[in-house]
C-alpha cells in the first residue's frame, strides 16, 4: 500500500491518508478482506503520530471503507452501496475527462458538449 504525505499541504495529514486509502480501495488496488497495516505500524512507516493514523482509520471506518476487529487489526470492508456509488462516480469522472479532452481537440465548446450530452441523456 502506497501512501505519500505532504507536510506542506493545507490538507490535514489524516485526510491525506483517508483519501489515498479510499482511492486505493475504489481503484481495486486494495480488495475486500485485505488487511491494512496496524495503526502503530502505519504511524511508524509514515513517521507521524499515532493519533493521526488512528483518526484516519476511524474516518474510514465511519465511511464504511474498512472495519476493525479488536486484537486482529483493520480490513477492507465489503463494498456497500455508498462505496459502489462513489466507485462508479469515479469511473464516470474519468470517462468524462476523456470526453472533455477529445472535445477540446476538435474545438467543441462546453455549450455544444452540454447540448450533445442532454440529447443523449434524454433519448
Amino acid at each position: 500500500m502506497q501512501i505519500i504525505i505532504s507536510n506542506s499541504s493545507k490538507e490535514p495529514i489524516y485526510e491525506q491518508i483517508t483519501k489515498q486509502i479510499k482511492s486505493s480501495i475504489l481503484t481495486g488496488k486494495l480488495q475486500e478482506g485485505m488487511s491494512l497495516p496496524s495503526i502503530r505500524q502505519l504511524a511508524k512507516d509514515l513517521q507521524i503520530s499515532v493519533i493521526t493514523t488512528k483518526r484516519a482509520y476511524e474516518e474510514l471506518e465511519k465511511a464504511g471503507f474498512i472495519y476493525s476487529i479488536v486484537g486482529k487489526g483493520s480490513f477492507v470492508a465489503e463494498q456497500n452501496l455508498e462505496v459502489i456509488k462513489e466507485k462508479k462516480l469515479k469511473v464516470i469522472e474519468e470517462q468524462l475527462s476523456a470526453v472533455i479532452t477529445n472535445s477540446r481537440e476538435i474545438g467543441l465548446s462546453l455549450n455544444d458538449l452540454q447540448e450533445l450530452l442532454k440529447f443523449l441523456y434524454e433519448e
Binding site: 502503530r40 505500524q41 504511524a43 511508524k44 513517521q47
Partner: peptide
C-alpha cells in the same frame, strides 16, 4: 524512530 518502534 526508536520510540515509535518500541511503542509498537
Amino acid at each position: 524512530n526508536l520510540l515509535q518502534e518500541i511503542m509498537m
